[in-house]
Amino acid sequence: MVVLVGIIGGCVYQTGGSARETMAAAELVEAVAVGSHMSSGRWRRSSPEPVVFAGGDARVSWEDGDDSVSIEVARFSSAYAAAGTFLLGDPTAAAAEDFESSPRSADLGVRAGADEQEGWCVVERGDGCHYWMYRARFGQYLLLATRFAPGRAMAQAEFAGYVDQFVHAMDATLPRG
């Protein structure tokens, strides 16, 4: 147990990185939503204001029929706390259980901005991926982007295009210190 804690602690120390500018998650998710220009295309924003959860995390979603894209931002006390959550958390677990699927890792080709990042196709059917998920860490913040549509698959390149918009907007809002 001590060895495991030491290994995890060392990884978190190495990947913690520097903190970014501090702002509320709701303020940040709104800035990313506006900066991504998602509302200027086919997507219609689900609510005019970000949804703020009890712990302070915040989400913005867009819809087009039964198709949805959302981003969620969580703010941690430090870059190290966010790195630990990134290292140990699995955002795909609940979705995979709900849909009885096995998520597959996907390189979305987003190269700029994030300290750490990973992507998955969470639900894949015969015609392609119906549920995409991407997670990235920016200092003390985690960004989670999802795309879900029960009736229509989305190509990896299309989801990667949305993710790229979110990552660039997040990076522009939170420059490295």
Rank of each mutant, 00 (worst) to 15 (best):
S77A: 15
V32K: 02
L87K: 07
E97K: 12
R75S: 14
D64N: 11
S36A: 12
S102W: 10
P48E: 15
P91C: 01
A74W: 05
G56N: 08
V51L: 14
D90T: 08
A95T: 03
S61G: 13
G56D: 06
V32I: 13
D67T: 09
G56E: 03
R44I: 12
T92R: 08
E49C: 02
R75C: 07
V51I: 14
G41T: 04
R75D: 01
R42V: 07
M38W: 13
I71P: 00
V60Y: 09
A25R: 08
A25C: 04
P50T: 08
A94N: 10
F99N: 08
F76W: 07
E100H: 14
F86E: 00
I71R: 05
T85G: 03
S47P: 07
D90Y: 10
R75N: 10
A79H: 00
S78V: 03
V34Q: 08
S39C: 01
R42W: 08
E63G: 09
S101N: 04
A24K: 14
D57M: 09
G55Q: 15
A33V: 00
D67L: 10
T92V: 10
I71D: 00
P50C: 02
A94T: 14
A24S: 15
S77Q: 15
R75F: 03
S46L: 15
L87N: 04
V29T: 05
E49S: 12
G55L: 13
R42D: 09
E30G: 03
V60H: 07
S68L: 08
R75H: 07
R45S: 02
A31P: 04
L28A: 03
S46F: 10
D57I: 05
D66H: 10
G56C: 09
A31V: 01
A96F: 11
G41H: 04
A94I: 12
P91N: 03
S36P: 01
V34R: 10
S78R: 06
A94P: 05
A93Y: 12
E97L: 13
V69A: 03
E49Y: 05
H37G: 11
T92L: 01
S101F: 07
E100N: 13
A95H: 11
A74V: 09
R44A: 09
S102T: 15
D98V: 13
I71A: 03
A24P: 15
D64T: 05
V34F: 07
R45I: 05
A83S: 07
V51Q: 15
G35M: 03
L87T: 08
S102E: 15
S46M: 12
A96Y: 10
H37W: 11
V51W: 06
F99Q: 04
A25D: 06
